[in-house]
Design a protein around this nucleic acid. Structure first.
Lengths: 142, 142
DNA sequence: CTTCTTCTTTAGAATTATTCCAATTCAACT
DNA sequence: AGTTGAATTGGAATAATTCTAAAGAAGAAG
């Protein structure tokens, strides 16, 4: 299995479809998200990518992340006023924000629940995006 | 119906229960939210309250809003990276953010759907708060 | 293979919502 | 009236993000 190439190809393809170029920066940022799916902030992505491309700038990391979000390869996740976190999980899912550790966990969102949620919208309303987030504390004994 | 007094009393009572004092600033900020339930930002609340109490400071508005949130009289609502908005609707509800106008609409959240949503959490998880937000465009012909 | 054009990256400045801070004011209770 | 703790205030500080202008790369056209 040639995972790396597969990811790169998918990225290159999706970028091309949007009339955008593939660049080492974009690949590394995307890889950083895929390698550790722990919902890092832009700063954390910056730190990780810098080990492989020391010259990269924080502005570029922001640019790349924004590009990936635009291409629908990545989701931006916001909790209250905290820095935006990024998530390469494309399946519909909710987020659980553990207040004790600060960690973020993906929660599977069954399709039928998703449609039930959509159905509470009054007639005429239609949603481009739905965000469902939980906040709470996980038991410490895990 | 002596609405104003009722609100004030409820506020005073809730503050007292939390060992906090009632102040003109807190009353005015709370009133501003109740009078126009349009999910204003702190800045907007500041502008409204200043007409009645010109000396109030923005820091105080932030303090009062935070106090009201702590007392569970008001909910803070966040959309993406936009400034926090404040909402005196205490019933469980979702939010619809209209991208064309920037307006925010409350969406009734039936109790049974709420419990269905909670039930997708894996065992051991328990949520202190649930946020459900829709983003989309409303038809212009309304 | 040179030139043109356009996209991308870069460093640093700018923005902006929010929080912090130290000093004053206020209100309740002796 | 005096003390104490809470609340307010103006301004400075913070921090995530965006903007800007210049330099760099990369594909297209000649």
């Amino acid at each position: 299995m040639i995972t790396h190439t597969t990811h790169s190809d998918a990225l290159a393809q999706t970028l091309a479809d949007s009339g955008l170029r593939n660049t080492p920066q974009r690949e590394l940022v995307y890889d950083a998200l895929l390698t550790r799916r722990d919902h890092p902030t832009a700063d954390e992505v910056y730190a990780r990518v810098k080990t492989q491309l020391p010259g990269i700038s924080l502005a570029t990391v922001y640019n790349c992340l924004e590009t990936l979000v635009q291409c629908h390869l990545v989701r931006a996740v916001n909790f209250e006023r905290a820095p935006t976190r990024y998530c390469p999980n494309l399946k519909p899912h909710a987020h659980f924000h553990d207040e004790s550790t600060g960690a973020t966990h993906d929660i599977e969102l069954p399709p039928d629940l998703l449609s039930q949620i959509e159905s509470i919208l009054p007639p005429g309303y239609s949603a481009d995006a739905i965000e469902l987030t939980f906040r709470g504390k996980l038991p410490t004994n895990r």
